[in-house]
Design a protein around this nucleic acid. Structure first.
Lengths: 99, 99
DNA sequence: CGTGTAAGGAATTCTGACACG
DNA sequence: CGTGTAAGGAATTCTGACACG
């Protein structure tokens, strides 16, 4: 796993990095927009990728989007990426190419 | 600043990642082998590069080196890198090359 | 709906010291 | 010298709730 996706920082650091309040960050988790890991004691751990996601979410919120709308947008984006991946896989299989 | 050098994780995470005890990690700081930042409250913050450094230090310790010896080895390595950088700079200046 | 806040408690970290070898 | 540990306190985080609009 890369440094970007490894969940290592507490919510205070994420708050500083994103400019969001801990309250906002926890709420976006409640709304299934972000998925931190937990330590044995229960404290949240975030990755740099999570920070990037939160900055993205913050921009969308400023543009007036609702949390459930943002959730659908993310899901939509993931599915498009998945489709592209699969298409690439089939093309590679058909032509025996190497990436 | 890159994800690798940004100081964001608490000592507990670093302990898990390196396999070193918090006591050991703090001691290596006392011996000037590692330099975490601090939050306003005083808690230590480490980067992934710090984690790499600690793994290196742990290896050297297992090989029987003293902390002050390891400190000199690190300093030596930095100076060698600096020399190489400066040499490269002079060569570039002399030949007007681009890297 | 999205966010601030006060409340009480729990997890985490901090420092300085003693111990051992 | 390098590391473990118990001690007391401080910083950080957690949850559930009330408030507002």
């Amino acid at each position: 796993m890369s440094y970007k996706t490894k969940k290592v920082m507490p919510i205070g650091i994420v708050s500083e990095l994103t400019g969001l309040s801990p309250r906002q960050i926890r709420y976006y988790e409640e709304r299934k927009l972000i998925f931190p890991e937990r330590s044995k004691g229960g404290t949240r751990k975030y990755s740099f990728l999570d920070v990037e996601r939160l900055v993205n979410i913050a921009e969308k919120m400023e543009d007036g989007w609702r949390t459930y709308e943002i959730r659908r947008m993310e899901k939509q984006k993931n599915q498009e990426e998945l489709r592209r991946e699969m298409l690439r896989g089939q093309l590679n299989a058909a032509f025996r190419q190497r990436t």
